[in-house]
Amino acid sequence: MRSSRIRFALLAVVAIMVGLFVLLPTSHQLRRQQLLLGTVVEIVAFGPDLDILEEAVSAAFSEIARIEHLMSPHIAESDVARLSAATEPFAVAPETAEVLALGLRVAKASRGGFDMTLGRLKQLWAIGSSAPHIPTPAEISVALTGVGPDALTLNGQIVTKKNSHLAVDLGAIAKGYAIDRAALLLRQRGIKHASVNAGGDIVLLGGKSSKERWLIGIQDPLEPDKTVAALKLADRAVVTSGDYERFFERNGVRYHHIFDPASGFPGRRSRSVTIVADSAALADALATAAFVLGPEAGLALLSDFPATEGLIIDPAGEFHLTPGMSTLLSWH
């Protein structure tokens, strides 16, 4: 009698398990990569319908390419290239105006730590090219003439440069904006769980599933094969800026791509900065600003932006973080 009850219970368990496997909706995963924004962009999306995933991910890549064509300084017909060449007030696309408005906000809050008018300085150093160059003080002085948080004025979509020779560079914000737009397109197509990763700048749509957040490692700036900590996140953006991303070395000195507008030289107050925010564009701009400002002023800047957390690793390898960041991190 007992034995038949046990058998009945086991059969019921088996029936329930089989029923769950059959009835639960199957979630597909789509993972695609493209070379865009000067890096590898990877989109991972989950959903029950593979056709919808394919269409949504293709649309997201197209959107990133469209934003790149608006904001790359290397594309002659882009808004940024034409704005740099403009001698009169210049009308930009609504998306470019949105990025400029956010950038000006961060530029003012950081008192120039973040600067979108360093185009000439970046051209001068040519970091990432086959012939990087350490400029003379005189060359730097010329390249920095007229730059700063007040060098651009935005009125609707009309941009006015204080000095006509200023070259605009949105490299420290446009990548974040492009992946924000890609995530928006995925969301508009009903995708609830996805990640958009542009060379380590990441936007997350929902969690990895409805029950699990994404686990994100933060690269160790001293040992790039390792991570220093992990973040568990959903529906957030995370961006890291470090001195190991693009650089050249001469006579044992590393010259990297994040410039301090005050000196015209690569910033020396930080090794890496990781920012968690609601948008990748904001996280991107704040990561650069906090890198340049260093731990003390960088953390003070982050306190001006609600729902934004940060980790700054200084040149000695010490960690400085906002109170909220400690609740997001798990250490190795």
Binding site: V44, S195, I202, L215, I216, V239
Partner: peptide, 11 residues
């Protein structure tokens, strides 16, 4: 063709 380890690295 499926890879169920979705961890990301921010760098």
């Amino acid at each position: 063709g499926r890879d169920l380890d979705y961890d990301l690295i921010t760098r």
